[in-house]
């Protein structure tokens, strides 16, 4: 730890280490940003209906489709297990068919993420349906009051 052996004062060595750490962190940040941008397609958890219609999907390719469950679009089939509903991103819509249990948060107007394949008839056959929560937390009475007064805003895209 002697300063004289290198011919430099401890102060300049500290400054050098500070710059080295700052430079290292900057490079690391840039590298991380580049990697994350390059792999963006793998990092996104789901695609919106607009994304899906723009993508060239192989027949039978499994993807995740997410968006809002369109109001008044949920229909239970006669067999009691199959549900049909429409997912929208307010721009494009895709019809989804799913046979199975739905999560508790599954609701019309709420976010949802489904996994499955897009059929040639344009209907998305889901093998899994996950509900997505938004960032709003409030008691039921407050939600009802907001809806009644017309101050309700849909925040989810």
């Amino acid at each position: 730890m002697s300063a004289t052996s290198t011919g430099r004062t401890p102060a300049t060595r500290k400054k050098k280490r500070l710059y080295a750490v700052l430079a290292g962190l900057t490079m690391l940040g840039v590298a991380a940003a580049l990697v994350l941008t390059a792999f963006e397609d793998n990092i996104v958890f789901f695609y919106s209906p607009t994304d899906i219609t723009q993508k060239d999907l192989r027949p039978g390719q499994t993807v995740r489709l997410g968006g809002l469950v369109e109001a008044d679009s949920v229909k239970k089939a006669d067999d009691g297990v199959t549900t049909e509903f429409v997912i929208t991103d307010t721009n494009k819509t895709i019809s989804v068919r799913y046979a199975g249990l739905l999560p508790d948060l599954f609701r019309e107007g709420q976010g949802v993420v489904t996994q499955g394949t897009l059929g040639s008839d344009g209907i998305f056959l889901a093998s899994e349906v996950l509900a997505k929560h938004d960032e709003n937390y409030m008691p039921k009475e407050v939600a009802d009051a907001l809806k009644k007064s017309g101050n309700w805003k849909e925040t989810e895209k």
């Binding site: 994350l36 990092i43 997505k132 938004d134 960032e135 709003n136 937390y137 409030m138 008691p139």
Partner: peptide, 24 residues
Amino acid sequence: EWWNTLHQPASVIRLDGPTIHSSM
């Protein structure tokens, strides 16, 4: 915010203020 995630966006620390009712 950067990517589509299953997890919901921030509710407390956000530019337009918290989206959690004060009782919570």
